[in-house]
Design a protein around this nucleic acid. Structure first.
Length: 268
DNA sequence: CGCCAGGGGAGCT
DNA sequence: AGCTCCCCTGGC
């Protein structure tokens, strides 16, 4: 068990901010997160956070995953005080972090996300994990399913994942799995690229457009200047900003602001 | 039953 | 850049 005191950190807000589809609150108030093939249980009282894992696992994985070495106070302090809408959104979501999630998992998750709602996205991801992911056993004996590897879905017929409730998105995931499993699309090259290059590379995948590419850049490659505009964000921009957000003011970390706004909109 | 919206994208002009 | 079409599911 690892105990830390952490500023600007909220498991509940991170979970509700819709960037991780495998993070849920349990009946006892703890949170369970599955990241790739790893499982973590964590709980929080105020700034005191308990991570149910070894020191090695915390230092070697979860510290980075939760972006704990970043000072979010500086992002919060940068908010325009004359922007009452954003100031309120940041106040409500000041514990949000931009997670550093697995690249393959984010590609598939946001392929599934299009024209879909968060409840069903989560169910879709659970479905493919149970059917095509490896069964794992946590240290406490709990069984869970790792996120499916590309190889596990690469040889399926294009409509096979309709069984998992993916609908017409099945072919996007199967084709992309084939491309990655065959080595024609090399995942490990992407973290070396800058934002623009990574984004262009991702846009080459079938089913990945501008918005999905930007989500992958933000939530996996940690290009926090990425500012994906989805239907919710567009509604906010039209309603609160006459259609255009002051991106230049938040250059370099606009994606963090995007996440505060998105959270605020979901909580509305 | 129809209609609409949900963290859009492909294909074409 | 903008338009049409695609075409799954859940809620109302």
């Amino acid at each position: 068990m690892i105990k830390k005191t952490i500023e600007n950190f909220s498991l509940a807000q991170i979970s509700a901010s819709g960037q991780c589809f495998r993070m849920d609150e349990e009946a006892d108030g703890s949170f369970r997160i599955i990241a790739g093939d790893k499982l973590l249980t964590a709980r929080q009282e105020g700034k005191e956070v308990e991570f149910d894992c070894s020191e090695d696992a915390f230092e070697g994985f979860w510290r980075n995953y939760f972006d704990l070495d970043e000072d979010y106070g500086k992002f919060i302090a940068a908010v325009d005080k004359n922007d009452a809408f954003l100031a309120n959104a940041v106040k409500k979501g000041s514990g949000i972090r931009i997670l550093k999630q697995d690249l393959w998992e984010m590609i598939v998750s946001f392929l599934i996300s299009q024209q879909n709602n968060i409840t069903r996205i989560k169910r879709c991801i659970n479905n493919i994990s149970e059917k095509y992911g490896e069964e794992m056993t946590a240290e406490n004996g709990m069984k869970y399913y790792a996120f499916p590897m590309p190889e596990a879905m690469a040889d399926l017929p294009e409509d096979a994942l309709m069984e998992c409730n993916l609908g017409y998105r099945s072919k996007y995931v199967v084709r992309t799995s084939k491309l990655v499993a065959s080595g024609d699309f090399k995942l490990d090259e992407l973290p070396k690229l800058g934002y623009e290059e990574a984004r262009e590379r991702l846009l080459g995948l079938y089913g990945v457009g501008k918005k999905v590419a930007e989500c992958i850049c933000l939530f996996s490659l940690h290009h926090i200047d990425a500012f994906p505009i989805d239907t919710h964000i567009k509604q906010v921009l039209d309603r609160e900003y006459a259609g255009s957000f002051p991106l230049e003011r938040y250059a370099g970390f606009a994606g963090v602001m995007q996440q505060y706004i998105f959270f605020n909109e979901l909580e509305k």
